[in-house]
Write a protein that binds this DNA or RNA. Structure first.
Length: 576
RNA sequence: GAACUCUUAGCUCAGUCGGUAGAGCACAACACUUUUAAUGUUGGGGUCCUGGGUUCGAGCCCCAGAGGGUUCACCA
């Protein structure tokens, strides 16, 4: 275990003092909250002079003799509370104010207050407290950020808790002290709700399909693999749910959707987390052109729900989601960027264009990959405003239907926004013969070493052999959309708990019973703060080092007892 | 996986030429009955990420490692 900091020791001591005062630091009774801080701010006139009951975290204390101000932070905001000694201690005994409030109550503690709403001389809306109770003690100091309101009404934050590693590892702290982080996650939830409402209003059915799948499919990605003991079989965490939702379309539902956590065992970056969220939607009797209209309308609705307008500030750009969005074919977009026609070019011709435009390619690239490289390099990063790119080469899209007049292309589109794909959709391939042939091509890619090639799913093929109606399908990346809609540069900012390498957490020295080896009581406390997690570790430690450390800890913790001799320490180690 | 970069008090950060560490907030003590980053005075608080090396001497220089960030690779 880590040696406790000065402030942590003080708070533990405060716990003891609370006990001697007869105050339970962790009471179990409910506390009858009837008001949020934001309600009082929003409707001051209605609350003025009324008694309210609030609960929240103490986030600041300003003590001025026998009167004090404090900041109370609840789930919806903050409000100042005003406390007078003689209000909370009407009798002779002033300990509640002088000791409990002034000394034992710390920033971070959960408290409940009852008081009357009023405005201070300086106009700050406050609660004049008549009763204050401790609801839960905090024994670990919070990072303290100071916020000052400037004359123009804008707020400036000093010493904010900003270290990315700590913010992600201890998101709970991030959420306590950074209100804009709470707001980002609230917006993410609103986004999902807006989409769900939009789809439900159209009568689409929200469904759930397996996360553990015997075969993974529906996307090109490497899966996470696991094992089921009872069935003694390999299972994969889904990389997509496409093939299951299409089975439901075969089954007769004409519109199904699912918000799904998907898992891909691939690189991590500011745009990639191993688990992420997609919304997939399948609608029978529709095609990709119809789906473009739906996507435009849905995303526009989301923007309005979150911002009240269609324009959204994203980095240095203002992105406008107002319908209609630009639509351009993949070839058209490349031709626009390259300044020359490419649709008719063969592999060699495309290579020359890549060379002329300094697009890096590989000898193994076929025609489709060359197109993809040109698009990824010349077009995609420059598409800031939402744009539909349509008609992809068939090789890149094994689950999409061919265009009737151009069978080397498929009826597919992606929406690109802020230089990144936010959704992918197509007219679903429902020709079981063609689907089997496409799977065979994927198998061949797999045999040639493509680790992301799709596997053949016989049951899925059997399903569409029964006949799948013409269907439009959509996958929309919720994390990426949330990043754009909340103006966040990294996926970690829109995931509560982004994936991290394990933290080297210092563990308690539970393995060593120091009392049993003859350590006197006075030294048990500090020894247990030393970093030995096992008897072996303690026995193997340098006794001189322990001697020195105990000397230091003695001073630090003001221990009266004499420092044990090195000989004594050796005897403890021998007894261990 | 690669390159670059960061890691110093609870938080945000300084740290000069290599001479065993500083500030603000937070914390402790005292004063203070409407404050607004409350204020004033005083004080305590450090595994300088870890492990090696160079050196009389390392927060600083060198090597290795851990973790974070960014970019790239990968990635619908």
């Amino acid at each position: 275990m880590r040696i406790l900091s000065e402030q942590e020791l003080l708070r533990r001591k405060a716990l003891e003092e609370l006990k001697t005062m007869g105050i339970n630091a962790y009471p179990s009774a409910t506390f009858p909250v009837d008001t949020y801080s934001i309600d009082i701010h929003d409707r001051y006139a209605a609350f003025e002079g009324k008694e309210v009951t609030l609960a929240g975290r103490l986030m600041g204390k300003r003590i001025m003799g026998s009167a004090s101000f404090a900041e109370l932070q609840d789930a919806k905001g903050r409000i100042q509370v005003y406390l007078r000694r003689d209000d909370v201690c009407p009798g002779e005994d002033k300990a509640f104010y002088n000791v409990f409030f002034k000394k034992l109550l710390d920033i971070g503690d959960h408290i409940g207050v009852v008081g009357v709403v009023f405005k201070t001389q300086l106009g700050e809306i406050s609660v004049h407290v008549s009763k204050l109770v401790l609801l839960a003690k905090s024994v670990k100091p919070l990072p303290v950020a100071k916020e000052v309101e400037k004359e123009d009404g804008t707020k400036e934050v000093y010493d904010a808790f900003t270290d990315a590693e700590q913010r992600y590892r201890q998101r709970y702290v991030d959420l306590i002290v950074n209100p804009q982080v709470r707001e980002t996650f609230r917006k993410r939830t609103l986004l999902v709700q807006a989409m769900r409402d939009f789809l439900n209003k159209r009568g689409y059915l929200e469904v759930e399909t397996p996360i553990l799948q015997p075969l993974y499919g529906g996307a090109a990605a490497r899966p996470f693999k696991t094992h089921h003991n009872t069935l003694d079989m390999t299972l994969y965490l889904r990389i997509a749910n496409e093939l299951y939702l299409k089975r439901l379309i075969v089954g007769g539902f004409d519109a199904v959707y699912e918000f799904s956590k998907d898992f891909r065992n691939e690189g991590m970056s500011r745009f990639h987390n191993p688990e992420f969220t997609q919304m997939e939607l399948y609608v029978a009797y529709k095609d990709y052109a119809w789906m473009m209209d739906l996507v435009e309308e849905m995303v526009e609705t989301v923007a309005l729900a979150l911002h009240g307008k269609t324009q959204v500030q994203v980095g240095n750009h203002v992105i406008d989601f107002k319908r209609p969005w630009k639509r351009i074919s993949m070839y058209g977009a490349i031709e626009e960027a390259a300044g020359q026609p490419v649709a008719h070019l063969d592999e060699q011709g495309l290579r020359e264009v890549c060379a002329a435009k300094n697009v890096e390619v590989d000898d193994t690239f076929g025609r489709a990959k060359l197109i993809d490289a040109l698009f990824g390099e010349l077009v995609e990063p420059h598409l800031i405003q939402p744009t539909f790119i349509t008609d992809y080469p068939v090789e890149m899209s094994p689950l999409a239907k061919r265009k009737a007049d151009q069978p080397e292309l498929v009826e597919r589109f992606e929406a690109i926004c802020n230089g990144k794909e936010i959704c992918n959709a197509f007219s679903e391939l429902n020709d079981p013969m063609d689907q089997r042939a496409r799977f065979e091509e994927q198998l061949e890619l797999g045999r040639r070493g493509d680790v992301e090639a799709m596997v053949l799913d016989e049951d899925f093929l059997r399903a569409i052999e029964y006949g799948m109606p013409p269907t439009a399908g959509l996958g929309i990346g919720i994390d990426r959309l949330a990043m754009i809609m909340t103006n966040q540069p990294s996926i970690q900012e829109v995931l509560f708990f982004p994936q991290m390498r394990p933290e080297a957490l210092e563990t308690a020295s539970v393995g060593v019973d120091y009392a049993a080896v003859g350590v006197p009581d006075a030294w048990l406390g500090v020894l247990s703060t030393m970093p030995y997690t096992s008897i072996e570790e303690f026995k193997g430690a340098n006794p001189n080092r322990i001697f020195n450390d105990l000397g230091g800890l003695r001073k630090k913790h003001k221990i009266e007892a004499p420092v044990p001799t090195v000989e004594q320490i050796k005897s403890w180690q021998a007894a261990a």
